[in-house]
């Protein structure tokens, strides 16, 4: 598996960060328009659930439609993600890129984005139990970019994305993203409480009111501390996959390098006329 041909996951994440810094408006808007509304509604949902304090009878029934609606809102992010992939593809290739036109294009291809998004989501949930289905998420994330770049049909782009040897880099990206989210969560969760504690200890400031909001045991702040890094890392993850796909394209000009290598290996075994001396 030619994983060494690709940049490592930390390099990709760092490139994604610089890409974000270079195009903050377009990447930020297209990236966050999808996930930020869901995150905001999720916070309200958590607050409602927390204020309920018990989960029987009418409270349970009241939460059910809210949960159904929230699950629906979650899927609104995927057209934006496809639009971001389209916009990235145009920008990287040097073609004139417009985020509005990319969004229009993504709306036109709504079934594709929903399909990839659903597979990605199932991959996340199943992968958190069985690990293996994470590959589905990696494949679906690459498929967004492949579909945006090529003229392939949605199903072909998805199928062909499994042939890109990015599983190793994708797994690395997953680990790096997890660590980044955890670090972001810990910093965001603990920093205000530490600052308030310091203010109380040093200048005897009255921080009781603020501690109820920003304290370590404040559920809203815990939820915010978790969601903000998650949204940011999700954005970096998307951009990093776009850059990974660009690497693959530059390397092979769209050809199936891995398939060709395997074919040559096979021919070496059967015909003996071709010497494939690599990966040593």
């Amino acid at each position: 598996m030619p994983r060494g041909l690709f940049p490592s996951a930390p390099v990709l994440v760092s490139r994604a960060w610089w890409f974000l810094c270079e195009y903050p408006v377009q990447v930020g808007v297209l990236g966050l328009m999808g996930s930020a509304p869901f995150a905001a509604l999720l916070l309200f949902y958590v607050r409602e659930a927390e204020e309920g304090h018990y989960f029987t009878g009418s409270v349970s029934e009241a939460m059910r439609p809210v949960a159904l609606g929230l699950a629906g809102v979650y899927f609104a992010r995927f057209p934006f993600r496809l639009a971001l992939a389209r916009w990235m593809a145009q920008t990287v290739s040097g073609a004139p890129a417009s985020s509005v036109r990319a969004l229009g294009w993504a709306v036109l291809h709504l079934p594709t984005s929903l399909f990839y998004g659903a597979v990605s989501t199932l991959g996340w949930f199943l992968g958190s139990v069985l690990i293996v289905p994470f590959s589905l998420s990696i494949q679906a994330n690459l498929a967004f970019h492949r579909f945006a770049v090529t003229r392939e049909t949605a199903w072909t782009a998805f199928r062909e994305s499994s042939r890109i040897p990015a599983g190793g880099v994708g797994s690395q990206l997953l680990a790096v993203s997890g660590v980044l989210t955890l670090c972001g969560f810990l910093i965001l969760w603990m920093a205000p409480a530490a600052a308030l504690g310091l203010a109380e200890w040093t200048v005897k400031a009255d921080v009781v009111g603020l501690q109820q909001v920003f304290g370590l045991r404040s559920p809203p702040w815990i939820a915010i501390s978790f969601l903000f890094p998650l949204i940011g890392v999700d954005l970096l993850w998307t951009v990093a996959f776009g850059l990974l796909h660009v690497e693959w394209q530059n390397l092979t000009q769209g050809a199936d390098l891995l398939g060709d290598l395997r074919k040559l290996e096979k021919e070496e075994r059967t015909a003996g006329g071709i010497v494939a001396s690599y990966n040593k």
Binding site: A71, F75, P111, T112, F115, A118, A154, W155
Partner: peptide, 18 residues
Amino acid sequence: WRSWSAMGPAILFVPLAY
């Protein structure tokens, strides 16, 4: 019309993920 090939899988996977 490239997205038409995603209609079938979308009908299967989207409700499942939902």
